[in-house]
Amino acid sequence: MTSFHSELYRLAGYSKKTNPEILLSAERMPICELAAPETNTGYSCIFNWASMRYSFISDSVKSILGYDKSKFFEKGLDFSLSIIHQADLQKLRELHLAIFNYYYNTPSGQRSKLRFSYNLRIITANNSIIHILRQSTFSGFTSDGKPILEYINSTDITSFGYHSMVLTVHRLSATGIYVKCYERKFGETELLLSERERQVLELARQGLTTKQIAQQLYLSVETVKSHRKHIIAKAGGGNITTAINRLIGKSAL
């Protein structure tokens, strides 16, 4: 399991010591297959976070990416990560940190109503680069609220061009309409920071205190304080709020 693979597993709330009963239960969950897009511009899949395996992939993935779906079943998430454009791969780390921070800061009863959307570039089998929009929802949860199944629809939006990676979160309202409640742009300026500094910056943006950040990242308070100082210095601001605004920008919560 690659380091990024392991990191995503941890962000989703799981660990190497995950109860075997949870894994067995996840494997037995009934799968409602998604209807493959008829326009040949997209594909769909279901990813099981408990087992870190794909449960379903539509046949149309080959017409979009050029890879047979058997590769995704055989090689799993590591293969999916290997075909992401290198410039977007690091941003994807911070994007998933933002996704799961938002997920776990949402009451457990509301998590199934969230829809996460983001764009990224993928390298196809013939070595061309296409721009994909992914939209996903979670379904099936452990007793303590961890996500099990993620239903994902991916659409080829190459014709729209590529500017930057953007994450949006919508929540299903009582009237049955998805309402945007969060947006964040992942720009090149964030790459000035180290991986750990970006994690500290995102958690500070979420409103966590230095002590809370230390607990979540398994760091000492002094180490987090040091990271905050480096972030502020790189942003050229006088405090962490200024650094957030300059490096991330204001996001709607």
Rank of each mutant, 00 (worst) to 15 (best):
R228S: 06
Q86V: 09
Y102D: 09
K16M: 14
Q90Y: 09
R196N: 10
Y162I: 08
R93Q: 10
W49Y: 08
V166D: 12
E27Q: 14
K211G: 00
D144L: 06
I129F: 01
E195P: 07
V169A: 06
F56W: 04
R115D: 03
Q90S: 09
Y104E: 04
H5R: 05
A233T: 07
T39M: 09
S63F: 03
L89E: 12
G249M: 02
Q199R: 10
K75W: 11
S82N: 11
E74L: 13
A36G: 03
T106Q: 02
I240R: 03
Q86G: 03
T210K: 14
L95C: 02
R198W: 05
K71Y: 09
E195L: 09
R205P: 00
N40S: 09
V61H: 02
S80I: 04
E27N: 13
M165T: 08
S226Y: 15
R10Q: 14
F138K: 11
S226W: 13
S70R: 08
A35V: 11
K91S: 05
A214C: 12
G161W: 02
Q199V: 00
M165E: 03
L92K: 05
L8I: 10
L253H: 09
S173Q: 01
A26K: 08
P37Q: 12
R111M: 06
H96C: 04
V221I: 13
L97C: 14
I123H: 07
Q135P: 01
A87E: 15
R228F: 02
A98L: 00
I46Y: 01
G42E: 03
K91Q: 04
Y178G: 04
S58C: 13
S128L: 08
A26L: 05
Q216R: 15
S82W: 11
T168E: 06
I244T: 04
E150F: 01
I129G: 00
D78Q: 06
K91G: 09
E202W: 13
